[in-house]
Design a protein around this nucleic acid. Structure first.
Ligand code: MN
Ligand code: MN
Ligand code: MN
Ligand code: MN
Lengths: 226, 226
DNA sequence: ATTATTTTTTAGGCTTGCCTAATCTTTATT
DNA sequence: AATAAAGATTAGGCAAGCCTAAAAAATAAT
């Protein structure tokens, strides 16, 4: 049985491996707000427990067992976030901290019932995919808004690494998951993009914001750029 | 800010004061599955924090601050139990352990939203009263089934200290909170009682079970015993 | 190739929360 | 009242998780 701290380390390692392919001691420490020396000890312990493979001085990889544990935590975290937003009326920028606690509650019946209660959602309030009880992710093809051709018809699919501040900004701009828009313009100078909703005023997003938005092509009215 | 262990100690002390008017070191230890020596130290710490008054060798009382903390924990525990039963379809004998974890999740917004989402319930699945956000209990007058006059028309109000085993027994007998019955007979020999539902067969409960059931008089058809 | 810098690990400490064993205190028995 | 028993506290230890400081290894810069 894993302690809360062990779970947090596994989750951090998993998240780092997802994006960068490697998880270093310092990166894990930064993410958890602890020191590298503490992380070294913990990762060694988790390696002894068979959840990770620890190559001293070269970082760590998850074993199948470790990966399964990580995916279950991701599942729990995202299901709770979905509950908080869909059922309790939390804003998407308010849920992370609470889900960070709820994800550690131990009960498989609880999490499976919760999933069913929510209609077995495939994506959380930030558009992040929710693994099913076997650890499988829903499939979907997305692209960064930054890389979207001019004129493309798109749907907002997810906000990547959304800090509360970024999410609040999107609230104020009226941008949310599932929203359909057209890429109306892109400024050479600063990389900002103008998005055109079906009705209403154009929304301008900075390059910095666009780099955090994953979108799906809605296909129908896409126009290739030239 | 209180640790999980501190919270568990406060809750245990509160529960003991409720029933017996006193909370001894050993009683707290039994309840928490720890040793008296550990409890002594913890209670002293909580006294230093202003949550309890510790009279060495004579047990402990809660201060106003300590009582408020205890009531908030009771509130959280019972709201989560209600959520698990009403929304997630848990049986009332399955919820205690999970609620024991959920009650420690820290977020006032969470608990107030949850309460509202559930319709601000006044009683949990076991019939126990849920304090409101100010720590006030709903009022209700109940009596032990054991003390009920023969012929009385009653409604099952609560199961006191219901172990999972007792709750399962009640499931099998078809007894649940809110059920209306008449006290049809009581055996001198073993103190068992026969209960008559509006329709269906008579249900016999042992004295041991009856001693755990709180009931309300439904008034209308009450007949005093003689 | 050395040397300097950065990263990781090891060593030694500290706090929390638990334990056992020994020492009071209080309460019950003779 | 003296003694026995029960209950509570103190003393000393231990494991988990964290820290800082020192040592070791890998990487970068001359
Ligand atoms: Mn967490
Ligand atoms: Mn999320
Ligand atoms: Mn608890
Ligand atoms: Mn209950």
């Amino acid at each position: 049985m894993l302690t809360r701290s062990e779970e947090d380390h596994i989750k951090a390692v998993h998240a780092l491996l997802e994006v960068g392919g490697s998880a270093s001691t310092t990166e894990v420490a930064e993410r958890l707000g602890t020191k590298a020396s503490s992380v070294t000890v913990m990762l060694k312990k988790l390696a002894d427990k068979g959840l990770m493979k620890h190559e001293p001085y070269y970082g760590v990889k998850l074993t199948a067992k470790g990966k399964a544990a990580a995916l279950m935590l991701v599942r729990k975290h995202r299901l709770w976030e979905t509950f908080l937003v869909d059922r309790l009326g939390f804003g998407w920028e308010e849920v992370h901290e609470v889900a960070e606690q709820l994800e550690h509650v131990r009960s498989t019946k609880l999490i499976d019932s919760l999933s069913e209660y929510l209609g077995n959602p495939a994506f959380d309030p930030h558009g992040d995919p929710i693994p099913d009880r076997n650890g499988r992710f829903p499939s979907r093809s997305t692209v960064l808004l930054t890389d979207c051709p001019l004129g493309a018809a798109i749907r907002i699919a997810a906000v990547q690494d959304g800090s509360d501040g970024l999410l609040q900004l999107l609230n104020r701009k009226g941008i949310g998951i599932g929203m359909e828009l057209a890429v109306a313009a892109r400024q050479e100078f600063d990389g900002s993009v103008d998005l055109q909703p079906a009705k209403g005023a154009t929304i301008t997003l900075s390059a910095m914001v666009a780099a955090h938005l994953l979108v799906e092509a809605t296909g129908t009215k896409a126009k290739s750029s030239h």
